[in-house]
Amino acid sequence: MTELGTTLAASPLFGMIRDGGWTMWLIAALSVITLAVVLWKLWSLWRLGVWGGSHSRRAIRLWGDGQRRAAMDAVRGRPSARARVAQAAIGTSLDPRFDDAAAREETARVARQALYRSRTGLRALELIATIAPLLGLLGTVLGMISAFQVLQSSGNQADPADLAGGIWVALLTTAAGMAVAIPAGVALSWFESIADRLQSDLEDLATRIFVAGQEPARPRLFEAAE
Rank of each mutant, 00 (worst) to 15 (best):
A81H: 13
V211M: 04
L48S: 05
W51E: 10
G165I: 03
G66Y: 04
V50M: 11
A176F: 05
E223P: 03
Q157I: 08
R104T: 11
Q87P: 08
S200Q: 13
V186L: 14
R76S: 15
A176I: 06
D73E: 14
T34L: 01
I17K: 01
R109W: 12
L171S: 05
R97W: 09
A164V: 12
M1N: 10
S56Q: 04
A206V: 10
A81I: 12
S200P: 03
M24V: 06
T173A: 11
G21N: 01
G165S: 12
L138C: 00
Q214T: 02
I17P: 02
V32F: 01
T23L: 15
S189T: 13
A212H: 09
A74D: 02
R58T: 11
G155H: 10
T173D: 07
R208Q: 15
W25M: 09
V75I: 14
T130Q: 11
E226V: 08
E223V: 08
L221F: 09
V180P: 01
D65R: 08
L163D: 07
T92R: 03
A70K: 08
A147T: 15
S146F: 02
A83T: 10
L39F: 15
L198S: 09
G121S: 04
L171G: 03
V169G: 06
G136I: 03
A70F: 09
W25Q: 04
L134D: 01
I182K: 02
A59C: 08
P183S: 01
G53K: 08
F148I: 13
D204C: 07
S93I: 06
R109T: 13
Q113K: 09
A114Q: 15
L45Q: 11
I167Y: 10
S146D: 14
A70C: 11
G66P: 02
T173H: 04
A83L: 12
L151V: 10
I209M: 03
A10P: 04
F98G: 00
S56K: 05
T7Q: 14
A101Q: 14
F148R: 12
E105N: 08
F222W: 14
G213V: 09
D65C: 06
L45R: 07
A10H: 12
P183N: 00
L188D: 09
I128K: 01
E106Q: 13
P216V: 06
D95A: 06
D95R: 05
G121K: 03
L142P: 00
W22H: 04
S31D: 00
I167L: 13
E105H: 10
R69A: 14
G143I: 11
T120K: 09
E223S: 12
L138D: 00
L134Y: 05
E106F: 11
